[in-house]
Amino acid sequence: MSRIIKFATPPTLLSFSAVGGYEERRGPLGDRFDLTDPTEKFGQKTWECAEAEMSRLALNIALGKLGISHTELDLIVAGDLQNQCVASAIGLSSFGVPYLGVYGACSTATESLAVLSLFLSQNGGMGAAVTSSHNSAAERQFRNPIEYGGQRTPTAQWTATAAGAFLLSGAPTERGVRITECMAGRMIDGGTTDATNMGAAMAFAAADSIITYFEQSKRSPTDFDYIVTGDLGAVGTRVLYELLSDKYPSVIARHLDCGNLLYDLKKRDVHSGASGCGTSAAVLSTHFLPMLSRGEIGSILLLSTGALMSPSSVLQGQNIIGIAPAIRIEGVGLRKQPQNGFAGHI
């Protein structure tokens, strides 16, 4: 059995949005966010509530762009980094839409889009995938108090304060940006307990999923404009290239990592890059989906990467488990004719 699920009726992306914080606004994609709040509080009293508010705002903005009401949604698939995915629950409960919570650590953006696509391709209707993470909420839960003064290792990543919402329709369309395939990733031991080097731990899962996808799909990496990973960051990307350099140099040639795109790694104090499930949601929403909708690129393979661990599991000496689900996103009937032989490359 092939592990890749090819949708008979691929769901079409109707609208998308991104909400971000201070560092995200200052990043290279900053002006493409729909909404950013430099205080990162979004009018809330706590960081946890701020994250919940971000997912609510992201979904509201995506609905607003389409000019529809939340009552037209049949399902919300959402997740975040907080315990029991409570940010999604608190932020999205007021919509009164059936809900499936998913947790894949930082791979949640891809996971939620895959799960939603499975439902919509089977049942039709309209649904939303929402993903969020908040730097301060994550610091509090996984690391030290926010105002604690410590030096971060060069491998440490900066959890993004970002949320993304994606509205998908299961109705068949002639043209549009579609999710045509999905594949669950295997859980791969990251070979380390170092929670300040999660990019490296996740790279093994990313490599495993990439190799499996191209082996099973019989496609070539050249069929894609970009092969996009979630939040490997600078160090994780290096590990990925090390793993793929022999057999898949063509993957490396078209690889981009959302964790390296969200911030200016040289200017900002974010060390190895962005992490958190908001990273790939926001970069997808501000960078890749606009390019796909404008027809500048034809298709991408998105593999958000997750580090499955808890503060306790790490202290108890358990290795970090990496995961990387994949989805293929294609623009159908949108592609512009290439000019001068090139199209869509930044």
Partner: peptide, 26 residues
């Protein structure tokens, strides 16, 4: 990637991980 054992994984991670800037930090 399931073919790699923990030692091999650690070696790859170590190779790709930049070291802390000891002199500057000190």
């Amino acid at each position: 990637m399931q073919g790699l054992n923990e030692k091999e994984k650690s070696a790859i991670i170590k190779k790709c991980t930049p070291k802390s800037r000891v002199v500057k930090n000190t």
